[in-house]
């Protein structure tokens, strides 16, 4: 993938942190903003997951898991409410799996593989949320059809919109200004 930024070294040391924080903030805001085409049956893309998949590919499993938990907590904060059910569980696993699959060289670095990861991740996150609701006492018969629809819609939307976030972030993080990949 081509780099969109010229190879320079005169950015301050914290530019990467600022970029990460700003992009997470945008992802958080995107959950509130309803733009045309981003909303299918009341479901919006899971931007946090897309961000996490983009991020985790460059880091060890432990770091990816901690990042996933953090993003899940932020997402919980946006929704409000109790500590369970939490998004942190699903995102932690998604981050861990992404980092691990990268280590194992299971995944090649093309958009199709990333889309696949995002798709599986979204289904997994929604399913884990559904299981938490079920454990908390919701009726399985009510939950299951709704959850199925939610998981599939979220997965399709997230993987379709994935390049919008993945391409610029990945290009930036791969540029020589960022720490070189191990």
């Amino acid at each position: 993938m081509p780099s969109y930024f010229p190879p320079k070294r005169d950015y301050p040391w914290w530019h990467n942190y600022v970029l990460a924080a700003a992009s997470v903030f945008l992802c958080a805001c995107a959950t509130y903003v309803q733009l045309p085409g981003m909303n299918l049956m009341g479901v919006t893309p899971n931007w946090m997951l897309i961000w996490l998949v983009t991020w985790s590919r460059r880091y060890p499993v432990l770091v990816a898991v901690v990042t996933g938990v953090s993003l899940g907590l932020v997402q919980d904060a946006l929704v409000g409410g109790d500590w369970v059910p939490t998004h942190a569980l699903g995102l932690a696993i998604a981050g861990g799996v992404t980092a691990w699959s990268q280590r194992q060289n299971f995944m090649r670095e093309d958009l199709i593989s990333i889309a696949l990861l995002v798709f599986v991740g979204a289904v997994g996150i929604e399913t884990l949320l559904g299981i938490q609701f079920w454990v908390l006492g919701q009726d399985f018969g009510d939950l299951w059809p709704k959850q199925q629809r939610l998981a599939l819609t979220s997965a399709v939307l997230s993987s379709l919109w994935m390049p919008l976030l993945y391409v610029p972030l990945n290009a930036w993080w791969r540029s020589p200004d960022c720490e070189p990949e191990s």
Binding site: A28, Y59, V63, V66, T67, S70, G72, L73, A77, W83
Partner: peptide, 27 residues
Amino acid sequence: RYSIHFLSALVGLAIALGLRITQGMPL
């Protein structure tokens, strides 16, 4: 190799925890 990343991730976790406790007020 990864101490800096791991520590940054922990700082991120702390910030996220703060956001969670304040119900995302700063956000």
